[in-house]
Design a protein around this nucleic acid. Structure first.
Ligand code: FES
Ligand code: FES
Lengths: 144, 144
DNA sequence: AATAAATAGGACAAAAATGTCCTTTATTGG
DNA sequence: CCAATAAAGGACATTTTTGTCCTATTTATT
């Protein structure tokens, strides 16, 4: 469904949001540890997220990654997925035709578009805040 | 969503079904031509589908790939996806945790499972016959 | 100013997915 | 039997994704 990079990216962003709720800024090392991901690879992904304004980065001692409270509401999963995986998942044809086109649909088009639309809506309506709060309460996990 | 191999596999299987409706057996070359896919790679995928009993293969002159009419109804997309991409799409965690586990869910679990279940149902309820008939009537396309 | 801590970024490495080529095996028809 | 045809399969090549390592840059602290 999502690339590894995207999975790590979402988990990382949720962790940053969670810690930002307590006003804590977090380092790449801490993030990678807490979401159980390869450190250097995670660093690349955090760079991408930072460039796409999904999270903020601060250099130097006491630096790290953070998010302000208001952004946790406005940043939706769709932005993260788009920043890392691009828009294939939103506009691509399920059977791999050049583009999805309702005028010359592939045999799976109608059924596929239904699912894709649900997925898109879900991603567009899910904020980092929402995901972070479940974690805070101890109901969900970013690693096992 | 699906791998390239899986996309080609579905398109190939639908084309085989379509031609089998007319009692025509088709070669790898014809299939690759008609679904616009790389020949040798398509051959490998057809081998997989044949081994998984999704389609039948016949060697030698006048050989090729075919499906009997009754199988077109019983073969569902879920079988093709499972044969080629495995069961990740059915049982994997959306955020990449080792396995999807409702007792220790990732933050996206509930919402992800909804989508995944819809996708699973769609694949399990869609037969090759259904997809082939749309093609036959000229309403859908396997290449553009 | 010097040091140290932290992200940014480039170059490289490994693994997986995608794709190609060639030989083998089975089968048909002459 | 022989030749031709088509799938099966093994080995290899290319591309993409995933992952690592090292250096540069920024900045807080002393
Ligand atoms: S054309 Fe294939 S999903 Fe729309
Ligand atoms: S645990 Fe992540 S989707 Fe179920």
């Amino acid at each position: 469904m999502f690339s590894k990079a995207c999975e790590y990216g979402i988990r990382a962003a949720v962790y940053v949001a969670l810690q930002s709720l307590d006003g804590r800024r977090v380092s790449v090392n801490e993030i990678a540890e807490e979401i159980d991901s390869p450190i250097a690879f995670t660093a690349k992904i955090l760079q991408q997220l930072s460039r796409s304004k999904v999270i903020h980065s601060v250099k130097g001692p006491t630096g790290g990654f953070e998010l302000d409270r208001t952004e946790m509401d406005t940043v939706k999963l769709s932005m993260i997925v788009h920043a890392i995986d691009g828009d294939d998942i939103y506009v691509g044809c399920g059977l791999g035709l050049k583009e999805c086109n309702a005028n010359q649909p592939c045999p799976l088009h109608d059924k596929f578009v239904d699912i894709r639309t649900d997925l898109k809506n879900m991603l567009e309506n899910t904020s980092l805040y929402e995901l972070a709060t479940g974690l805070e309460v101890g109901l969900t996990y970013l690693k096992r």
